[in-house]
Write a protein that binds this DNA or RNA. Structure first.
Lengths: 266, 266
DNA sequence: CTAGTTCTGTGTATTACTTACACAGAAGAG
DNA sequence: CTCTTCTGTGTAAGTAATACACAGAACTAG
């Protein structure tokens, strides 16, 4: 009586949309009808190029189709909805995680996780259009899962439970995305207004000063009086600080358990 | 030569849109023209009710206007763009931070920050439509700033620099939002598919199993073989774990400096 | 009191976007 | 050779944001 949550269409075993099964390399092209003019990768690549060049706002089904020289509706032979295209674009945009450097052989979990976080951040900041695609659900695409694999692998030596590991990955992944999004928002504001980063921050501080005061907002006032908003390396500081705290907290947990275990063994 | 980033319209000193200056209580109603039929609070309240009842997708300018019994365009007399309405809705949705309980008098920073984070989370989960409004820029509305004030105040006793404090607030605020969003996404999936939370998780695990394996995804495989995805208190665990790690990391920093200072004084 | 100013609500129209649907024709299967 | 299946496409429906100009309301200066 359950109404058949058949999101995967006909030949689906995974429950995923056909386009995603395609991305995973499952599902052959049926030899029947006319040769397709397009391929899913070509559509995605076109959409990605458009997003990189003109921003996510430029990515509409009609525009992508025009770029490919086909009609809008033809895209719906490859993708059942625009959101599906978004997922494929995200996956292509993040790409596969880069190979670890040779010296990573001797790294501990902290170095591995740090590298993972910075690598992810670099990708998102180099392709900031990805950040304009809202996250809809749990990761199911190949590259997203490859990054997840890498993150979990980095935590292998920690002795954390699996639940703690995935929580950590989500925690740090969220940090990376949040901070990259803030940086991208700021970049947008700079481009849109045509002024320097310092001027954007200055305007914000000036605005806040007008609305806050020592009586109503003592802590904010202290913040505004400090030099916290001067210096354009602020996004980097914020990210490094956040990651540092998380890793410190993780280290405390890991080392604490290590000590307990060592004590029990002795 | 700077092209007058005059986002605030005529009488603006703050640089904010008129509707936001209204929300701050600046700017009087000009006594000239006909009496307005609407008020900004009434518009926002209507939009919020709509969002709470039917979700953010139901909130369009046309629909809000219909709900109020006016024409679509009349709303543009109060708000210059839909995004402005969104900001006001968010502000109304989060509301003012609740009063601290009396026993908070004796609390340390950790309790204060914990309370702050959980309170914010509760508000977001009770009004999850807020999570569907993308964040566009730095907070400028009254309640958003009140929450920020509270967060910064909670860190007053830590000895952190102002830059570290705001980084911490952003870090934890991001965690709260991320985790609440994931919980809301899951809730949506449950409602949409009509099955139980466990079944949704089960379907996800089953899907991943089909696409991963010990050779390509050893760490993910270990995760899937564990019981990390069973048990529906998982969102709560994840949030608590993340917050715990961050606070532990913060404590290490704070106490480390305390120790250094004590040493210097001795 | 009157004229002028300013502001309100509204109708109309433009532009853009997603997607349902049905049809013509291509390519392989039997 | 016929049938099935699949492709690209045109058309059209439905929704949405918002620019623009107009009619009329309420206040203000004289």
């Amino acid at each position: 009586m359950a109404d058949e949550d058949d999101a995967g269409g006909e030949g689906s075993v995974t429950g995923l949309p056909a386009s995603l099964e395609m991305a995973w390399g499952l599902r052959e092209r049926p030899g029947k009808g006319p040769r397709p003019t397009l391929t899913l990768p070509r559509i995605v690549e076109t959409a990605v190029t458009l997003a990189a060049g003109e921003g996510m706002d430029a990515v509409s089904m009609g525009r992508v189709a025009k770029e490919l020289g086909v009609s809008t509706m033809s895209l719906y032979r490859y993708v059942t909805a625009k959101e599906e295209l978004y997922i494929l674009m995200s996956d292509a945009g993040v790409g596969a995680p880069p190979a670890l450097p040779p010296e990573a052989e001797g790294w501990g979990w902290r170095e591995l996780v740090t590298q993972w976080a910075y690598a992810q951040r670099a990708v998102l900041m180099a392709n900031s259009w990805i950040l304009r695609i809202p996250i809809t659900g749990a990761p199911v695409s190949p590259n997203q899962l490859a990054w997840m694999e890498r993150g979990l692998a980095a935590l292998a030596g920690t002795g954390l439970t699996e639940g703690e590991k995935i929580s950590t990955i989500i925690l740090i992944g969220g940090l990376v995305r949040n901070e990259a999004t803030m940086a991208a928002d700021m970049m947008d504001a700079i481009v849109k207004s045509g002024v320097s980063p310092d001027q954007v921050m200055g305007q914000y501080v000036r605005t806040l000063r007008l609305m806050t005061g020592p009586d109503t907002h003592p802590a904010v006032t202290r913040l505004l009086e400090s030099d916290a908003f001067t210096g354009s390396d602020e996004p980097d500081f914020q990210f490094g600080f956040g990651l540092g705290r998380i890793l410190d907290g993780l280290a405390a947990l890991v080392e604490g358990r290590q000590a307990v275990q060592d004590g029990a063994e002795a």
